[in-house]
Amino acid sequence: MKSRFKLALAALVAGSAALGAAFAPGDAAAQGVSFKGKTVSIVVFSPPGAPPDLWFRQIGPYLSKHLPGNPEVRYINKGGGGSVVAANYTYNALKPDGTNVGSFNAPGAAESVRGKRKVQFDTSKMSFIGAQTITRIVGFRGDSGTTDLNSFVKATKKHLIGLQAADTPYYEAFYRIMGIDYQVFSAYPRFAQRLQAMRTGEINTTPFAHLTWVQNLSTYKKTDFHAVYQMGYMDGSGEIVPVTVGGMDKVPTGHSIVKKHKPKAVGSRDWKIMTSVAAGQGVAREVWAPPGTEAKYVAAWRKAFVATSNDAQYKADHQKAWGVPMSWIPGDVGEPIVKKYLDMNRPGAF
């Protein structure tokens, strides 16, 4: 009944042309878990239409294909509060019957250990399903005098950095170590406003999500923007490493710059602050199951996400949409990374 109605509505608004792909049948075999005839829900930590929302909406049909029983996927948008709203909702309002998972970002997860804000969730009681890696590529205007690593290290002109509030400690620590004159502007509400400020010269450097940078590479080159360094992310070994997609391997991480040019600062308080932010980039967009979810369901979700990330069609779709392949950190690999990241962000960690 439900899917029939969905079909009718879909036909009303968009014709039935695209339905084939969206509801394609998939592999239904799984050990003791089947979502056949059910609807599974994903709590999305952004309002509808924002990049995280679209990312989840794009992955939804593939998850349906790879979850046992091919359930319908629906999305519950709980934006705001630096993703704490979505995390609270996932923890408190979702039934742990295996059909529900929630998402939040790494800084949101870190709020749970800082204990400063009105946080009503505890990641230690939840099950980690996996995460998408998203790091920052830091772009500079040509007229800032900084266009590559060399000119960055020798910079004499003040760097006017446009930032989002959550990432600010990383850049401040990095600039303190490097001894470069800087000023932070953190009030731009969205990326679009920062981009306009970059275009008019109100700021001369700002970080871009690496997906955005790779996607718009040609335009940014023409606009005289230069990728100088990146935040990188923490791999399973605990090292901060660069993302390598789209030619980004040539863009060094802040950590590698410090190691090379200010080796004495390695291990300092500022270094630890940098690491505490960069460590979250590997598990930037996290998916969790609410507390009490049975292990077999967690396993089914983990498997479905991994299978999706290996799905040839999805890979192509992701590449087309976001300009880079999907980089998924599976639950078992990501769990220790998340734990390290959270430990680094506990009060008094540095």
Partner: peptide, 15 residues
């Protein structure tokens, strides 16, 4: 308009 957009986005992605 946002809801209509959200409804149509899955189809738009395939077109």
């Amino acid at each position: 308009g946002l809801i209509a957009h959200i409804l149509l986005i899955p189809f738009a992605l395939q077109m």
